[in-house]
Amino acid sequence: MIEIKRLTKKYGELLVLDEVTETIEDGEKVVVIGPSGSGKSTLLRCINCMEDPTSGSIYFEGEDLADMRVNINHARRHIGMVFQQFNLFNNMTVLQNIMLAPVTVAAEDRRAAARKNFVIRIKNLFRKEKLPLLPKGKTNAEAKAEAQKRALELLERIGLQDKANVYPSTLSGGQKQRIAIVRALAMNPKVMLFDEPTSALDPEMVGEVLDLIKRLADMGMTMVIVTHEMGFAREVGTRILFMDGGKIRESAPPEEFFNHPKNPRLKEFLSKVIS
């Protein structure tokens, strides 16, 4: 699903990712761990094009993301991202937060279809065999109704339907993060990226967010999770990556990764975090 080839990222002189090569298959739950500053966030941000790679390339379902012909906004629709700081839209209610992207994207698709149909109609003036027109797409009202239905369904699944018309500032951290996850799900992404989803939470709220991520994992969602929660990594991950100094130093299934680490830096890291 995601193929990363010799991905290098530099900030000025600082080498943050050093020729990272990695493949993430459909349905995998890849957990990334590593010391602070090792480039974990940068890797995720490169995968959904928040950062331009200095060199190397990333393929999403066979398409090169760096290639300008691939519309980055289109690719991002299939890649959900969850941030450490939640980043709910402060100027919108919970429901509006979840509905914004589906409604906007439907409108864009509708306009794009209208544009293309216009061109097809002009071409048809000069053709014997008429080209068929593209479907018009949903009307705004249809898109809205559909997005709202889906948003409410999602909210119900996380037990927060009563918060639909509330602004984010009134929510607890755990509620915010669960809504941020649901907001990403509203676009039906094929893969979800989590960047330390529980690091900004009070300890008593970590559980509810991890539970939601676990449920997603059980439903078969492909995901890449950066986290410091080792127990969670072991439980949910199908594969654990250890990053250090901009490189992936070790990649193994959880059992092997935690019980028989090979890389000396990983051994040192594990002895520090698990004790």
Binding site: N48, M50, R76, R77, N87, T104, V105, R183, A184, M187
Partner: peptide, 8 residues
Amino acid sequence: EAGRAVGL
């Protein structure tokens, strides 16, 4: 970033 991440 969140806006871009959802595909806007």
